[in-house]
């Protein structure tokens, strides 16, 4: 399925890694670009031979409206996001609601997975995330039989986050998944990227990654996870219900009201490539939506 031209020779891949590791060594540690190394194992099951996006692009071209709406804002304003003493509350329809700090979360086995990432705006990347399946976290709180949906609430810090000084969106940022989507083995809580801790502009210290959905479903800088009986309303659904639905699965056959989703432009590239159904994860996730009209449930 993957053309051989898209496979990165291991030597180049290793060189890139060495380059990134080397940068940490020459004193660039003070920039928000490079975080600390993480303890992790590469998961061979999620190691497709795809060409990785240049980390320069993945770290400088971001949608993170809390830090500003221009693509370069999140990197420039990265220091406005304070991640010390970060805690994640998991509550709602569960028997053991808990508050986790980052040490608790990093004690869960961390693994590296290479995923495709497709933004609703029509650009895409391939990046190595580090993290753990969300299911491992949810199992710890023992969801009840009423837990049909999961809501993710992101950071709220109006004093420091420049994008939250205006009510461009209804802060804090909220997203949601159906329980079976949340428990799916592909659904990842990411703590790192390219072998390092998440950079602030990428949603430090912990974010969601749902690779078969448009990028905005993958909430950044999460502080609260709620198990719910009823479907929550996400921030973008509230802002523009005609344009952003609850499911927001990557689907080349269903256009955004203002642009086509049939193609995407990989970061760093001039030319577009075809977008794959469920972003290339149809084999793993198509069964979740069997019998659903994907035009209606966009």
């Amino acid at each position: 399925m993957i053309p051989s031209s898209k496979i990165t020779p291991e030597s180049i891949f290793l060189n890139r890694r060495r380059f990134i590791q080397g940068m940490a060594g020459v004193g660039l540690m003070s920039t928000p670009l490079i975080g600390h190394a993480l303890q992790f194992k590469s998961n061979p099951e999620y190691k497709p031979a795809l060409e990785l996006t240049d980390p320069e692009h993945a770290l400088h071209y971001n949608n993170f409206y809390e830090l500003g709406t221009a693509k370069s804002d999140p990197f420039q304003n990265a220091e406005a996001l304070h991640t010390d003493d970060w805690k994640v509350v998991v509550e709602g329809e569960c028997t053991k609601p808990q508050t986790f700090d980052m040490d608790d979360l990093l004690r869960i086995d961390q693994e590296e997975r290479i995923y495709r990432f497709r933004c609703v705006e029509g650009w895409s990347m391939v990046v190595p995330w580090i993290g753990f399946p969300l299911s491992k976290l949810l199992e710890k709180v023992q969801p009840t039989s009423k837990a049909h949906y999961v809501e993710f609430v992101s950071v709220l810090d109006r004093k420091n986050l420049p994008g939250q000084r205006f009510n461009l969106l209804d802060w804090p940022y909220k997203e949601g998944l159906r329980m079976d989507e949340a428990m799916h083995p592909l659904t990842l809580m990411a703590t790192g990227l390219y072998g390092k801790e998440l950079a602030n502009q990428n949603g430090a210290p912990i974010r969601l990654i749902v690779p078969w959905k448009y990028g905005f479903k993958s909430s950044k800088s999460i502080v609260k996870i709620r198990l719910l009986e009823k479907q929550p309303i996400s921030t973008w659904m509230e802002a523009a219900p005609r344009e952003y639905g609850f499911y927001s699965n990557v689907n080349p056959n269903v256009s955004h009201p203002r642009w086509s989703q049939a193609k995407e432009r990989p970061l760093g590239s001039f030319l577009k490539q075809k977008t794959l159904m469920f972003n290339g994860y149809a084999e793993e996730v198509a069964h979740l939506y069997k019998g659903m009209d994907l035009k209606k449930y966009f």
Partner: peptide, 8 residues
């Protein structure tokens, strides 16, 4: 030097 999305 056109960045991650040169066409944009």
């Amino acid at each position: 030097q056109l960045g991650a999305n040169p066409v944009e």
